[in-house]
Design a protein around this nucleic acid. Structure first.
Length: 251
DNA sequence: TAGGCCATCTGGTCCT
DNA sequence: AGGACCAGATGGCCTA
């Protein structure tokens, strides 16, 4: 389409168009001629209500008024098109904003996620974070309960073996001095997850990556191809993110 | 070359 | 009445 020539950014969902919204500068002249020219009518069958009114008025008046109506229709069409373009650009900007917070490698040389992939991945990411938060709450509850009744039993014997996820650290800061007496688990050495524990060590093809989350025996729900924030898993590294991204691209 | 993804135009519908 | 939203149609670009 002619209007596509206005795009300067290859394959970008938010083309950097310098569109004059009042004119619709890259609107195809041919389309306008087809649309407004003669009484052949629009390219496609129907007309909008407003246009119908314009055209009805034009048919019953003299030629001058007909010309006026054509101009009106043209102007109206430009305005509506411009609004729709802006709306879609805003939508794409929001989509870009969503991509920015997704756990994916990003850069000028990396192809961006498609819209559908972005939405599906975002959904799974939210589900993962939600379950992570629940797990952290439970963990903090355990730690807090243990510190309150430390005379009854030792403080969470396995805790030092596990690194504390930033989410958990945040929760600790939220509960403040309540956990001050608890040994810092974050300082403990991290025992790496066994190979294959994370989905992206042996990732499935993209379709399954973007479908249902994987349910494992842990209280966490581990998503294939997704970095896991749980205390047992490594944080997402740059290389992992890169490989993950290349997988999602699938091309 | 087929298929996927995208931008744009367009008409219809709903809402304010 | 005007604007927002939506879905269908169309054509371009890119990749396998």
């Amino acid at each position: 389409m002619d209007s596509d020539t206005g795009s300067t950014c290859s394959r970008s969902s938010s083309p950097d168009l310098a569109v004059d919204s009042s004119v619709g500068s890259f609107f195809s002249e041919k389309m306008f001629q087809a649309y407004c020219g003669e009484e052949a009518g629009p390219i496609r069958s129907g007309r909008s209500k407003a246009e119908g009114l314009h055209l009805k008025a034009a048919s019953s008046k003299n030629r001058d008024r007909s010309e006026l109506a054509k101009d009106d229709v043209q102007e109206l069409r430009l305005k509506v098109n411009s609004r729709e373009r802006k709306r879609m650009h805003d939508l794409n900007q929001a989509m870009d904003g969503l991509r920015e917070v997704m756990p994916y490698a990003q850069g000028p040389s990396v192809r961006k996620l498609s819209k559908i992939s972005t939405l599906l991945l975002a959904r799974n990411y939210i589900l993962m974070l939600s379950s992570s938060l629940e797990e952290m709450k439970k963990l903090v509850g355990d730690v807090y309960g243990a510190s309150q009744s430390h005379s009854a039993r030792p403080v969470v014997p396995q805790l030092p073996q596990m690194p504390l996820h930033p989410l958990a650290q945040s929760l600790h800061s939220l509960v403040g001095s309540a956990t001050a007496g608890v040994p810092s688990a974050a300082q403990a050495p991290h025992s790496p997850p066994h190979p294959g524990y994370l989905g992206f060590h042996a990732p499935p093809p993209l379709p399954s990556l973007l479908k249902e989350p994987l349910h494992l025996t842990s209280s966490y729900r581990h998503f294939p191809g997704m970095p896991c924030p749980c205390s047992l898993c490594q944080p997402l590294t740059a290389s992992t993110a890169a490989s993950l991204h290349s997988l999602s691209m699938g091309k």
